[in-house]
């Protein structure tokens, strides 16, 4: 196996995202197994300040260009295509988030390279790259072997981020690229979210509802429980998509990352995009009618039961006993 191990640095709004360090830690292992060097690939318009944070890599390939300032996937993929063609790495690992989502597919299609999505681990076995991928909302794992060179999209949480952090200035190689000044996709600006009624990242107790809550009227039952416990209600994406709760209450990769003292998950399956937003809660109790729901893999306590039957009883207990206490 020839060629370097590359990790795309997810750099967004002036900072290197934590997931980058997780993927660098994984890249370190792949590099050890193949004997190839680990290179971080840093794209942006003015990113030199970020270099010292990438010490876990042997080297950093940096391309600065005015149109790379924001992660417009079209342009990032174009830049990466030029870099990959020129330097022929063995693999490019891309942290997969809402920022970088489609870069892998765009790049792989440009270069006709294999792309593997949803990687939760990557190993080198018998000189082959073998990836384990989460499919079907976290219910099935596929073990796959792409031909190399390959582009791999890596899910957040693949390794502890501390393993990918090192205070050391790596060898820097600046590469200039010829990129279009007027690309077909143009960045116009960011908008901060309107302040919500409740900041769920600051709540100690969260009652979280998923599609299993079934109707908007039942969300009101969850509100009653949250009120009785002194917490707030939040939800999974489908609940927000249905308009049953405002966007400020969404937990997950495209919502909020929460770390409450209690996360009571009612009728939430535990898809990877949801779990990434709540897995670090101090106490997770999950109620789901499906004994195989992936949420039980992150929960501390679980119950296979209809959430709608437990909900009113728990509210009643909380109301009567809290009053007494």
């Amino acid at each position: 196996m020839a060629g370097e191990i590359w990790v795309l640095v997810e750099q967004w709004r002036g900072r290197v995202s934590d997931v980058t360090y997780e993927v660098l830690a994984l890249g370190r292992e792949v590099s050890a197994a193949t004997g190839a060097s680990l290179q971080a690939v840093l794209l942006g318009s003015d990113v030199k300040d970020l270099l010292p944070t990438l010490g876990a890599a042997d080297g950093v390939l940096v391309t600065e260009h005015p149109t790379l300032g924001e992660p417009v996937s079209e342009i990032w993929a174009l830049a990466l295509a030029q870099l990959v063609e020129r330097h022929q790495p063995l693999v490019l690992l891309i942290p997969q988030t809402n920022v970088t989502m489609e870069i892998g597919s765009l790049l792989a299609t440009r270069l006709r390279l294999p792309f593997v999505n949803f990687c939760r681990d990557i190993q080198v076995t018998d000189k082959r790259l073998v990836a384990r991928c989460l499919l079907y909302g976290g219910k099935v794992e596929a073990t796959v072997a792409p031909q190399t060179p390959a582009v791999l999209g890596v899910l957040p949480g693949v390794r502890p981020q501390e393993q990918g952090r090192a205070e050391r200035t790596p060898t820097v190689t600046a590469i200039s690229l010829d990129l279009p000044a007027e690309p077909p996709v143009r960045f116009k600006g960011y908008t901060e979210p309107p302040p919500g009624d409740v900041d769920i990242t600051r709540e100690n107790i969260l009652v979280a509802v998923g599609r299993g809550i079934q109707r908007p009227e039942n969300v009101a039952l969850a509100e009653e429980l949250a009120a009785a416990l002194g917490g707030a209600v939040c939800g999974s994406r489908p609940v927000i998509d249905q308009g049953w709760l405002p966007p400020s209450r969404q937990v997950g990769t495209s919502g909020m990352i929460v770390k409450p003292q209690l996360y009571l998950a009612l009728g939430i399956s535990g898809a990877p995009e949801h779990v990434q937003g709540m897995k670090d809660a101090a106490l997770i109790i999950a109620i789901n009618t499906d004994p195989r729901a992936p949420i039980f893999s992150v929960a501390h306590y679980g119950a296979v039961v209809d959430a709608l039957e437990v909900l009113p009883v728990l509210t009643e207990i909380a109301r009567s006993r809290r009053r007494v206490a």
Binding site: P114, V140, V144, A145, R292, F296, Y301, G302, A303, L314
Partner: peptide
């Protein structure tokens, strides 16, 4: 050009303690 070597159902891992009983008993345990 991605070969699938194996596919497996993911077992529930992590050892969540499962609460048993009627909805009332489960609510009490919680």
């Amino acid at each position: 050009s991605v070969e699938i070597l194996q596919m497996a159902k993911l077992e529930v891992t992590g050892g969540a303690v499962m609460l048993e009983g009627s909805p009332e008993e489960i609510a009490e345990r919680i």
